[in-house]
């Protein structure tokens, strides 16, 4: 009988994640139930103050905007990614088509945001173009509104949705579509009743991979949105670094975490899939050695 070495192998990782992941989260939970100290930090007194102040109208409107922006951006992303994944899966040159999706995806996150600032800015490419064409004499403010935030978020997260959708559509047996047509289904019926239910796993993965990072977005609303398009991530960051109201930042973080957790639970229930499947569907797995597809998602 061999000894149980499992504990020894898994020990270091378990310890690391306990100290640097679980403990910091536990601190956030604890701080959310404490009173704020004047210059950052907390007073060791139990209090629900932080949760009560969640109900202020400014915060609620930001929360509502965050949900709305995440919803709209996710819907757009999925609707565009679905035919894309289908097109790649049915193409005779899948490698080339994947490559074209991965290049922008692999480009540095901030550089992609910066590119949009260079295009939409007051002295940017688009305004330059409009002036050259004589359509405008003064600059149009394209940046710093909700529309710009949604546009850039869709841009950032399209590949996160395309890759899992491609990999599940690719496993789909297309003769089923022909069979459905032969049995009298219209093209639309065949797609909706045969294709969509069969790729549900990839669809759920794609939604999760776009909605969750967008919901926690920080950099995109900060750089292309400005104050009027701030999302919850920006409020948390401001409360931590500027206002230094750590209990409030913690209680908002709790809200975001609970919602994220809820999404993950719904996901697990609807798709009965494990983390492993998610990794496979996302295309992180076998691809990453060669293409290094990053995932997890920052915004």
């Amino acid at each position: 009988m061999t000894r149980n070495y499992g504990k020894i192998y898994a020990g270091p990782q378990a310890l690391w994640l306990t100290v640097f992941f679980a403990a910091p989260l536990a601190i956030i939970v604890a701080y959310s139930f404490m009173k704020r100290d004047l210059y950052g930090g907390v007073l060791p007194q139990a209090s629900l103050e932080a949760y009560r102040s969640l109900a202020n109208p400014t915060l609620l409107s930001v929360a509502w905007r965050t949900l709305w922006v995440s919803f709209i951006a996710t819907v757009f992303t999925i609707l565009i990614a679905l035919p894309c994944g289908y097109s790649i899966a049915r193409s005779g040159n899948q490698a080339m088509r994947l490559f074209l999706v991965i290049v922008p995806f692999w480009t540095n996150f901030l550089i992609r945001i910066y590119a949009w600032i260079a295009i939409l800015g007051n002295e940017g490419f688009l305004n330059d173009l409009l002036k050259i064409l004589g359509l405008r004499t003064n600059s149009v403010q394209f940046l710093y509104n909700q529309g710009a935030v949604i546009l850039v978020l869709v841009y950032m997260y399209l590949p996160y949705a395309i890759l899992p959708l491609f990999s599940t559509i690719d496993k789909f047996d297309f003769t089923l579509l022909e069979a459905a047509r032969d049995l009298g289904a219209t093209r639309m019926q065949a797609l909706m009743k045969v294709l969509i239910p069969n790729i549900r796993g990839g669809l759920v993965t794609a939604v999760l991979f776009t909605f969750i990072p967008i919901f926690g977005a920080y950099a995109v609303p900060l750089l292309v949105g400005g104050k009027d398009a701030y999302m919850l991530g920006n409020v948390i960051a401001d409360q931590v670094t500027k206002t230094r109201n750590w209990p409030l930042a913690s209680s908002i973080s709790m809200g975001v975490t609970v919602l994220t957790g809820l999404a993950a639970v719904i996901f697990a229930a609807t798709s009965r899939r494990t983390a492993q499947h998610v990794v496979e569907d996302s295309g992180i797995g076998p691809l990453s050695a060669t293409a290094g597809i990053p995932s997890g998602g920052q915004a």
Binding site: L17, A22, P213, Y218, G233
Partner: peptide, 28 residues
């Protein structure tokens, strides 16, 4: 072993948690 489920779930949660939460909690 007894903490195997813990290791498995702890290896999944950081992937789906928004980065801002991870960053803020580490800062604190």
């Amino acid at each position: 072993f007894w903490y195997r489920p813990y290791v498995k779930s702890m290896s999944f949660i950081p992937m789906i948690l928004p980065e801002i939460i991870v960053g803020v909690s580490l800062l604190v």
